[in-house]
């Protein structure tokens, strides 16, 4: 596992998007980037994942071990990016098949069982609920065995109860990996993060988290208090912004 450090200004073509970023995301922990829609959260996800786009970093993006990040990052995005024409096993093993290596079908079955989809291996994504689709995407991230996992609003399209269940599942299965969670949901950040920032144009502000280890119980008083404080703070920001 490796840490990821992002320093500098993020530009979108010719316009600055976020300035003075200084994000030290520790190895084997959950780092959470919290921000409102449109602040450029997904741009950071694409940047770390090495995907093309108009974004441009004037600064540095480095892995803790000094090696390049390329090829060591897995991304799980909101839509899940499942192949509608392929069954679940083929969806989970698409990475190996795209690289032209032999897919590990046994491991795919194992992971599908771990995410709670045993017996559904032959189904198509259209036969699944939103939460089940994200479980498949999670299994696909796990089979890639990447050192750094970027989760770009992975659960934001799910209903609240499903979202809480998926957060617990992801926390359990991604334990020990360097996870970068990008979200607009304060509770999600407070539950899962070991380190968290609130993103804004002027830079990222470190968010203080409850002392308990993650994933935190959403009923715990300190989590609820932190959530209330954070919501008040975000509401203030939103009122100022527009």
């Amino acid at each position: 596992m490796t840490a990821v450090a992002l320093q500098g200004d993020l530009w979108m073509g010719d316009a600055p998007l976020m300035r003075n970023l200084s994000l030290d995301m520790p190895a084997g922990r959950w780092s959470c980037l919290l921000g409102p829609s449109g602040v450029g959260k997904s741009t950071i996800a694409r940047l770390i994942a090495g995907l093309p786009g108009p974004q441009q970093l004037r600064g540095s993006l480095e892995a803790g071990d000094g090696l390049p990040l390329a090829g060591r990052v897995a991304l799980m995005a909101q839509g899940g990016q499942l192949l509608p024409w392929a069954d679940l096993v083929r969806n989970v093993t698409i990475g190996a098949r795209l690289r032209g290596t032999r897919p590990d079908v046994g491991r795919a079955h194992e992971l599908l069982a771990q995410v709670g989809l045993a017996g559904m291996e032959r189904r198509r994504p259209s036969e699944l609920s939103g939460g089940q689709g994200q479980r498949v995407a999670l299994a696909r991230v796990l089979i890639e065995d990447a050192q750094v996992v970027v989760l770009d609003e992975p659960f934001s399209a799910l209903d609240t109860a499903t979202r809480l269940a998926m957060q617990d599942l992801a926390a359990r299965l991604l334990k020990g990996r360097t996870v970068i969670l990008i979200t607009h949901d304060p509770l999600e950040a407070l539950r899962l993060a070991d380190r968290a920032w609130i993103l804004a144009r002027e830079g990222a502000e470190t968010l203080s988290l409850p002392d308990t280890p993650s994933p935190r119980d959403f009923r715990a008083p300190d989590v609820l208090a932190a959530q209330a404080a954070l919501l008040a703070r975000l509401q203030g920001d939103a009122a100022c912004a527009g």
Partner: peptide
């Protein structure tokens, strides 16, 4: 675009990208 991203993340070979996606 989401599947193109997927192919890039997974370091797909062009021929495999063509056939599988």
């Amino acid at each position: 675009a989401s599947l193109a991203d997927l192919a890039q993340m997974m370091r797909a070979k062009p021929l495999h990208r063509l056939i599988l996606l």
